[in-house]
Write a protein that binds this DNA or RNA. Structure first.
Length: 179
DNA sequence: TCCAGGATGTTCT
DNA sequence: GAACATCCTGGAC
């Protein structure tokens, strides 16, 4: 998903777009940080079993977190979008989320969803459906070679030995909290 | 019905 | 770098 573009359509003309610069992977039953840990299905965690490309939003600390389901049906797993670089509709983003520093606009999972106006009404959308209000597409121009770095996930009490956080090295919109 | 706690963000110093 | 505002979910009872 790094380097792909998240597009939110707002009617005929208005569009919000951002390039994905930071993600985290959440696995299935074996991942203590995953909603699907131990295979437990609840009203919210059941979305982890949805088909790949399904939008999974989940509230934490009064913020919405945006995930995309990634594996095949019945295999729970998701990728959290932690940060994007604004590409289009910056004025609308600033209206949704007034900030002084430009990089504060979308440099965090809760910041990004607020700026994009993403909430529970987008739960279950298909990011691969061209008619969807929220889609993920290729970048209009293929970006210059980006270097991907990995690190441990942020805010996770019991992390796995694998480094499951991935980000575009050097991009200023990557959240910088230490893990 | 109640309560602890979290995939966070902001505002202090 | 640390405190706290925030608010929904799910497990306990």
């Amino acid at each position: 998903l790094l380097g792909k573009v998240i597009v939110r359509r707002l009617g005929a003309e208005k569009v919000l777009a951002g390039a994905v610069v930071e993600t985290e992977a959440y696995l299935g039953a074996s991942d203590p940080a995953s909603k699907a840990y131990l295979g437990k299905k609840t009203a919210t965690s059941k979305w982890m079993w949805a088909k790949a490309g399904t939008v999974f939003v989940y509230p934490v600390h009064g913020h919405w977190l945006f995930n995309v389901i990634t594996a095949r049906t019945n295999t729970p797993s998701a990728v959290l979008i932690r940060a994007v670089e604004p590409l289009a509709g910056v004025d609308i983003m600033r209206a949704n989320r007034p900030v002084s520093e430009p990089r504060e606009l979308t440099s965090g999972p809760g910041k990004f969803t607020r700026a994009f106006g993403i909430c529970e009404k987008h739960l279950g959308l298909d990011v691969c459906d061209p008619k969807s209000e929220l889609i993920i597409s290729d970048a209009p121009r293929q970006p210059a070679k980006v270097e991907v770095a990995s690190a441990h996930r942020i805010g996770v009490a019991q992390d796995l030995p694998e480094k499951l956080r991935f980000y575009v090295k050097g991009n200023v919109y990557v959240s910088r909290r230490s893990a």
